[in-house]
């Protein structure tokens, strides 16, 4: 399997630059307008506090899954599946918090080579991108259970729909290597 190329380091550098510029702007605004200073600090602090309470736990959970559920496991279970079971497995393995999206592409290409259905690969990728289990918990906390469940249901439905449309339109032409 090919080693996925990581997005360039400059991405992080840009993010730092933006963050620092924003902080400088905020300090200037806070100094120039003492009347809003309290509200800026209070709003920022309330978000920061909520994040600090939840983020370490979420990251630990993601780290545990990333180490325990290897790419090989996903490959083994998703390579030759079909039917409802295939859809459920694709959703399940996509939703496990096993790493960033760019890891999933070579994995999906490998699955296509092994003969996995195109619809399942699309469902797998969509689930990987937006139905991560710890993410759902964070969504539950910040947006409420009803919001999270409604959006989750809709997302699963549309992930399957997109999968079947893509499968009708094309088959993945992954470069065929040795079989």
């Amino acid at each position: 399997m090919k080693q996925p190329t990581k997005p360039a380091m400059s991405q992080t550098k840009n993010e730092w630059a933006i963050a620092i510029v924003l902080m400088i702007i905020t300090v200037i605004v806070g100094t120039a307008l003492p009347s809003v200073r309290g509200r800026i600090v209070q709003s920022a602090w309330s978000v920061a506090r909520e994040m600090l309470f939840i983020l370490p736990a979420v990251l630990v959970l993601m780290g545990l899954f990333a180490v325990w559920v290897s790419k090989e496991t996903v490959n083994k279970y998703l390579g030759r599946t079909s039917g409802v079971r295939g859809v459920l497995l694709a959703l399940f393995f996509g939703a496990l918090p096993t790493g960033p999206l760019y890891i999933a592409f070579p994995l999906a290409a490998g699955l296509a080579q092994k003969g996995a259905r195109t619809s399942n690969i699309v469902i797998f990728l969509t689930a990987w991108a937006c139905i991560k289990i710890p993410q759902e918990l964070v969504e539950w906390q910040f947006l409420g259970a009803r919001f999270m469940l409604a959006r989750l249901t809709l997302t699963i439905f549309f992930a399957c729909l997109i999968g079947f449309i893509v499968e009708r339109a094309l088959t993945i032409k992954a470069p065929k290597t040795s079989l």
Partner: peptide
């Protein structure tokens, strides 16, 4: 696993700061 967690925290740190400061600034 803990190393992975720590590494992703540092990768996320600028985005975290961005969002916190932005919320403060806009709501302020």
């Amino acid at each position: 696993a803990l190393t992975v967690a720590l590494r992703s925290f540092f990768k996320m740190l600028p985005s975290i700061l961005m969002v916190v400061v932005l919320i403060g600034l806009v709501l302020g």
